[in-house]
């Protein structure tokens, strides 16, 4: 700015000042716009180079035979045709869907139950809220290694507990079958993610005016009835959001299976992302890996679209 020191001014001054033709070739409005572009551009450059370009390249690579080293050649839709008949890929999809269908209702019910518990005033409720949220801030990798130990045959405390209660033999290996491995992984994820679901649902519950439930309670409804008939219906937008979060998260599962079951036994717990990882970075078949990624991306876009739809519909209620 110029050297002129403005005196303490009344709010009416800026209009007059802005109109002054101090810089005839650049109006204040124009200057603000240029400034805006300049401030947004660093973020845009990063997003373009590391997101938009790879996004377009995914589709481009998927039309090629693209090994890690050596030349790539255009093959059209051959990769997609291959995917339709690829039993490994189809199995990975089926397993991913099984996992999603298994874990989504568990997470939703657990999240709702815990949110219902801590949805009240007072210091104790706040402390419990913090405790229940704690596993969320621990990474999936750390959580998976922790539970890998918990469930070790013979050595793990969970295996030990199960043995003491006579639920399983002391040396039963829970990672020996795909089904029991899946159950252990599910338990870990429920432990780690429920707190997140709780917090989102809680924020939705707190947005509902307290008078509504109070009115129901005065009319003689129990806490549970009030929750079922007043809170739950009003919670629909949050429920939709939480549902989509957990579905999208489950469709992208990788860390927990890579660490806890290594995809085994006999590739029984390979998820879609795991299969993409194996295709691109174990077999170095980048073109085919990109095609599988593109398929996954379309599936996720569909989930997001459903999310939008659900949220928009519930806005009217």
């Amino acid at each position: 700015m110029t050297k002129t020191i403005s005196p303490p001014v009344a709010p009416s001054r800026p209009v007059a000042r802005a109109a002054e033709p101090r810089r005839p070739w650049l109006s204040t409005r124009r200057r603000r716009q240029l400034m805006g572009m300049a401030m947004v551009s660093p973020a845009l450059v990063v997003v373009t180079v590391f997101f938009l370009v790879p996004l377009v390249m995914t589709f481009w690579m998927s039309l090629h035979d693209w090994p890690l080293l050596g030349d790539h050649s255009f093959t059209g839709l051959a990769n997609y045709r291959r995917a339709i008949h690829d039993t490994d890929w189809l199995h990975a999809i089926r397993f991913t869907l099984t996992y999603t269908v298994l874990i989504t209702p568990i997470l939703l019910v657990a999240g709702l139950a815990v949110a219902f518990l801590v949805h009240r005033g007072g210091r104790a409720a706040r402390v419990f809220q913090s405790i229940f949220f704690l596993p969320v801030v621990i990474g999936f990798a750390a959580g998976a290694f922790l539970w890998l130990y918990l469930a070790q045959p013979g050595l793990g405390p969970l295996a030990d507990l199960a043995a003491r209660f006579g639920l399983a033999g002391r040396d039963t290996n829970w990672f020996a079958t795909a089904t029991s491995g899946l159950l252990v992984v599910t338990a870990m994820v429920v432990w780690k993610v429920t707190g997140m679901q709780m917090l989102l649902l809680l924020s939705g519950m707190q947005a509902i005016p307290g008078e509504l439930t109070e009115a129901a309670r005065i009319d003689g409804a129990s806490r549970w009835k009030a929750f079922l008939h007043v809170t739950l219906p009003l919670l629909r937008p949050t429920l939709a959001l939480v549902l989509v979060f957990s579905v999208a998260g489950s469709l992208l599962a990788f860390d927990q299976f890579y660490i806890m079951t290594a995809g085994g036994p006999s590739n029984g717990t390979i998820t879609a992302v795991y299969q993409i990882y194996r295709t691109s970075f174990i077999n170095f078949d980048l073109g085919y890996g990109a095609a599988l990624s593109a398929i996954l991306m379309v599936a996720l876009a569909a989930v997001s679209a459903v999310q939008m739809l659900l949220l928009r519909n519930s806005d009217h209620s």
């Binding site: 997101f51 370009v53 790879p54 995914t58 690579m61 990788f254 691109s280 990624s293």
Partner: peptide
């Protein structure tokens, strides 16, 4: 996860 291949 969906664009990791070209990112690499």
């Amino acid at each position: 996860q969906a664009i990791i291949t070209p990112l690499f």
